[in-house]
Design a protein around this nucleic acid. Structure first.
Length: 452
DNA sequence: TTTTGAGTTGTTCGA
DNA sequence: GTCGAACAACTCAAA
């Protein structure tokens, strides 16, 4: 009788194109699928992400014909118990290159080895595993464009088909995490829903992506990030579907950005929370009684700048924000309100259904000018110019700010200019952008002077 | 080793 | 209104 194998699901919650699961299921060996809620893992935190995870696990349990087991506790302890219960000495999992996952997996591997159980970490949650794309000099890339070129020429596996597994059922499970209704309206979980969206995107919007991705009023982005987060879709499955069209290459580059930032975090785990460029951390940030009030106005979408408020309200309503608007609201927090990028990054992680540590931290650092290949410090987004340029008809603004819906396309981007007076129930601009832009530039000058 | 070209997403100002 | 220059060095990656 073949001994079963345990398959430990983490950020690979799918049943097609799954090399690690394939290996666990090889030779007709029965597979016990398990998901472990690890109390030491603060991430995933955030109600929206936890709910989406819970729904994804519901889908996975059905898809494994009820065999999926959920346990809470330290993975090393849980896996030893399960191995003893089902009489096996092998555990398979997809490799995790995140700052927490690496340490955890090494410790779990050692702990299980001491109990005579072997662990097999295979594949990666990225098309190209972090650590495998290096410069001619053998160092890791810090600039995106050469990384993108090298990443493409490195290449990735062709996606494989559905996994045929003989699930080992009847093993006791603890109750699954409950998917309590959230304030935010979240996407439908599971592999079918993910592919419904992917097919829709790949058959149409991807060909307009170079323009459509910048239009928050238009459904022109893939919105696949929550599925990529949990591995419900693997990036190589999307990459395999992309052709040579320039707009497709722009989408390919977005997938590469995700991998670039995973690589950067792999090389520099500290950069999740601290400046990638240490000397940039000396920038003057505001402190004092007004900062909490400012931060709160930003969080709640009450800054008086419509494009900023629309974005922040979309975040609360959907647990998601259009990428163009993420940049605008981030720039506003850092360069108009002069607050720490970390504070904004934490708020994003609290609410984003797709919150990914690497992309989030480094996206914020790009805006703040503290990261790899960061935006030059003098690049300060003007919330009015951006709004006019990317939401010219005010579609996005009207969707999220119904109190401004009656304003003309010209006035809606800066409602305080309405001759009738500011609309009732909508705040005036909390700061003067022109003034704060200059203040931001002054602080960077001061920082540079301090390096002399 | 040295040199060279380049670097996601912008804004403002003045001609 | 449109266009190009300036913003400012600095670091990276490859030749």
């Amino acid at each position: 009788m073949t001994k079963p194998a345990i398959f430990w699901f983490r950020r690979d919650l799918r049943l097609t194109d799954h090399p690690a699961l394939d290996e666990a299921a090889a030779d007709g060996r029965p597979v016990l699928p398990v998901f472990i809620s690890d109390p030491a893992l603060r991430n995933p935190s955030g109600e929206n992400r936890l709910t989406f995870l819970a729904e994804t696990l519901d889908w996975l349990r059905d898809a494994t014909e009820g065999a999926l087991v959920h346990r809470q506790g330290s993975p090393a302890v849980v896996l030893r118990e399960l191995a003893a219960e089902v009489g096996t000495d092998t555990v398979y999992a997809t490799d995790d290159h995140g700052p927490y996952g690496r340490g955890r997996d090494t410790a779990v591997g050692e702990s299980l080895a001491a109990a005579g159980i072997s662990t097999h970490y295979r594949d990666a949650v990225y098309a190209v595993p972090p650590g495998s794309v290096v410069t001619g000099g053998g160092t890791s890339y810090k600039v995106f464009t050469p990384f993108f070129k090298a990443w493409k020429s490195h290449g990735w596996l062709d996606p494989a088909g559905p996994v045929a597994a003989d699930w080992l059922d009847g093993v006791t499970s603890e109750p699954f995490p409950s998917s309590a209704p959230t304030a935010a309206k979240l996407p439908v979980a599971g592999e079918q829903a993910a592919w419904d969206r992917a097919e829709w995107f790949l058959e149409g919007p991807v060909f307009d992506y170079s323009v459509g991705r910048d239009r928050p009023g238009v459904d022109g982005t893939s919105r696949l990030s929550p599925y990529l987060k949990w591995g419900t879709i693997h990036p190589r499955q999307l990459l395999a579907r992309l052709g040579p069209d320039p707009a497709e290459d722009v989408f390919r580059s977005e997938l590469a950005w995700r991998e670039f930032y995973a690589e950067v975090l792999f090389q520099r785990p500290d950069s999740a929370r601290a400046s990638f460029v240490p000397k940039m951390s000396g920038i003057e940030v505001d402190s004092g009684p007004n900062t909490d009030q400012h931060f709160s106005a930003w969080c709640q979408g009450q800054t008086g700048y419509p494009i900023v408020d629309a974005g922040m309200r979309q975040l609360l309503a959907e647990g998601w924000m259009h990428n163009r608007v993420r940049m605008i609201v981030a720039s506003f927090l850092v360069k108009d309100l002069h607050l720490d990028w970390q504070r904004g990054a934490r708020w994003f992680m609290k609410h984003l259904v797709d919150g990914d540590l690497a992309s989030n931290s480094h996206g914020w650092q790009w805006v703040a000018g503290t990261g790899t290949d960061a935006s030059p410090y003098f690049r300060v987004f003007n919330p009015i110019t951006q709004s006019r340029k990317f939401d010219p008809e005010g579609e996005y603004l009207r969707r999220w700010l119904p109190e401004l819906a009656h304003l003309s396309n010209k006035q809606i981007h800066e409602p305080w200019t309405d001759p009738v007076g500011a609309p009732a129930g909508y705040p005036g601009p909390m700061v003067d952008h022109g003034k704060e832009r200059k203040e931001s530039l002054r602080r960077y000058d001061e920082l540079k002077a301090s390096w002399q």
